[in-house]
């Protein structure tokens, strides 16, 4: 579809392979099934969040409240089930968490679509609001006893491999992430609604003139992000076998960084599912593996920051160079009006 984006995805993929080789050669533990399963497990929740973030960023907005929505949905669902239906099946937990997330997402959508407020301001506000309300009104203590069905779910395995010491398990929730990724891909690339999200992010006025219902698209986007955040939060709690109201919040920038690393443009209109998943993989590998090659954990944040800076900076500079070569430029001193190559 577009070479730039492709090359960006290839760049991320190459970086991943490179990082894997460096880590794997200096510490063979990296390539063990156990470690790989660990990495996949760590990608489950981030992958789901990234799908939501991708849609928002493509639409030209940004959502920093999704972590607050996730923990809100997780914690209140667990408290709710423990209080009223401790024997409920695990899928009910997901339905409830999804519904709570969707509801909170619609609050975002309401402010954004109804009053046309900047998305960053709205979601910064709602992030504090949701999290504060959770701590104040619903609870601020860690719940360690999940309903039995969720505990059972946390122990579920998709693949089990016998290791030297113990067993390595792959959790079936990875399916969840995969299915969501496929659905988001189909949505974004093959439905008019998805194309509307791209159109909105590319040129809002033009989208309006073309006949897209911008408000409806925005309600859809932020509602969907809320829903996905609810699911993500619930999975996070199940995998950790606890509901901690202080968890998740604070990781939003990591997810946004992963999506941007994967080629999504913060100015909107650009981004792919594959790219975002690669971005998540890169961030997760960097997060979990630097310790394996002896990078002290305090330095990991620095290294990840560096990867983000280089990973998003290099394609941006390349693009600017490419534009300058063809004579057009969006910013430089040459005239945009003369973007066409000289014909004389």
């Amino acid at each position: 579809m577009n070479r730039l984006l492709r090359s960006n995805e290839v760049l991320v993929a190459v970086t991943i392979v490179g990082l894997c080789l460096i880590v794997g050669i200096s510490n063979p533990v990296f390539f063990t099934v156990g470690n790989i399963f660990d990495l996949m497990r760590s990608s489950i929740v981030m992958g789901i969040f990234a799908m939501g973030v991708l849609i928002v960023i493509v639409s030209g907005g940004i959502d920093v409240s999704f972590t607050a929505i996730a923990v809100f949905a997780l914690y209140s669902t667990v408290r709710l089930l423990n209080a009223y239906a401790p024997e409920a099946p695990f899928w009910l937990a997901f339905v409830i968490a999804g519904a709570i997330g969707f509801g909170l997402g619609m609050i975002n959508a309401f402010f954004i679509a109804r009053f046309n407020l900047p998305t960053l301001i709205v979601t910064l506000g709602t992030m504090s609001m949701f999290h504060g309300f959770l701590l104040f009104a619903i609870g601020n203590t860690i719940v360690r006893d999940l309903p039995p069905s969720l505990t059972a779910f946390s122990r579920a395995t998709l693949v089990q491999v016998q290791m030297e010491r113990g067993v390595a398990n792959l959790h079936p929730a990875i399916f969840f992430t995969a299915v969501i990724a496929v659905l988001v891909w189909l949505l974004m690339d093959f439905t008019m609604l998805g194309r509307g999200v791209y159109a909105l992010g590319g040129a809002r006025d033009a989208a309006e003139r073309a006949g897209f219902n911008i408000r409806r698209i925005q309600y859809f986007i932020y509602g969907l992000v809320g829903l996905l955040s609810g699911f993500g939060g619930m999975i996070y709690g199940s995998l950790n076998r606890q509901a901690n109201p202080q968890d998740i919040v604070g990781s939003e920038l990591n997810v946004i960084a992963a999506v941007v690393l994967g080629g999504a443009s913060l100015t909107g209109g650009r981004g792919t599912v594959i790219g975002s998943l690669l971005g998540v993989a890169l961030v997760v590998i960097a997060n979990n593996s630097l310790i394996l090659i002896g990078v002290p954990s305090v330095w990991q944040r620095v290294v990840i920051g560096l990867i983000i800076l280089v990973g998003t900076g290099v394609p941006a500079i390349q693009e600017r160079r490419a534009r300058r070569r063809t004579g057009g430029s969006a910013s430089g001193p040459t005239q945009p009006l003369q973007a066409a190559p000289a014909a004389d």
Binding site: M1, N2, M192, R195, Y198, A199, G201, G202, A203, D205, A206, A207, R209, A210, G211, F212, S265, G268, G269, R270
Partner: peptide, 20 residues
């Protein structure tokens, strides 16, 4: 401003309104 979408392909820009 032509009401075009800079981030989409030429083909999609031409066909989008019609499909919509």
């Amino acid at each position: 401003d032509f009401s075009l979408f800079p981030n989409l392909t030429v083909a999609e820009n031409i066909a989008l309104n019609e499909q919509l």
